[in-house]
Design a protein around this nucleic acid. Structure first.
Lengths: 121, 121
DNA sequence: GGATAACTTGACGTTAACGTCAACGTGAAC
DNA sequence: GTTCACGTTGACGTTAACGTCAAGTTATCC
């Protein structure tokens, strides 16, 4: 039941959309969907990624890598690792952008507080 | 000239779009746009915000606050400050989401490296 | 055994953030 | 003096990520 998955604050439509995009692959009992632990975990990762601007395509790429990392083929692992390093670099960049913005916003808030304190002297 | 502003890696269309949305307000010389230091600064802030998932509306709200923070009306300042604190909380949340994701991805990368090292023994 | 509630597929609608194309103006260059 | 590169407005197109019906199926409750 997608209802239970709506515990995570999404609609059933979202679940079907993610399934259509290949992000989730629930089992079927009859024709109803059943979400196992794996899908629930993937969903949490996806939603977390979405909150700081990752696209569904990026989310899918990352969650799929969690599966491929257990591979045994050297060639595959090397390619995967290169891509992972790119993703890490990208995430670090975003982290820095976020950090700067947060820093500036807290500065503005501080100026407001100072201004208010001044008005009360 | 929007050309100069395309130094920041955006198209002129983007600039006009931001202007239409009230994010930028370039002066006009004749009917041509001229972007001053203020607009350039705002643009950088906007683009930075966009990189970690802020919408244009959120960007506008924040950059507009930079202007309002110099206000002298206590009532205004109080409202502004409350909103700023909400924004700070939101940004911290995103920061935490990003941090967790980054942490997990680097973990996967480490597993890959370990796996590769093992294949070379 | 009929209503209700939750599931399904299918299809079209919506919003944000631009892309793209048409038609026109304009100063500089040759 | 016309070609060209860059500017303008206006309008329609596009993509992502869902929302929102419509119409039908199944399990359950009373």
């Amino acid at each position: 039941m997608g209802e239970l998955a709506a515990d995570l604050g999404v609609t059933t439509r979202t679940l079907r959309h993610y399934e259509a995009e290949g992000l989730l692959t629930p089992r079927r009992v009859g024709q109803n969907r059943v979400y196992g632990a794996r899908d629930r975990a993937r969903l949490r990762l996806i939603l977390r990624g979405r909150r700081f601007g990752m696209t569904l395509a990026e989310c899918r790429e990352i969650v799929d890598m969690y599966d491929g990392a257990a591979s045994s083929e050297e060639r595959q692992l090397t390619i995967l690792l290169d891509r992972l390093d790119e993703i890490v670099a990208d995430l670090r960049h975003r982290q820095e952008d976020l950090r700067r913005t947060l820093s500036e916003v807290t500065d503005v808030a501080e100026q407001c507080r100072a201004r208010l304190a001044e008005l009360h002297t």
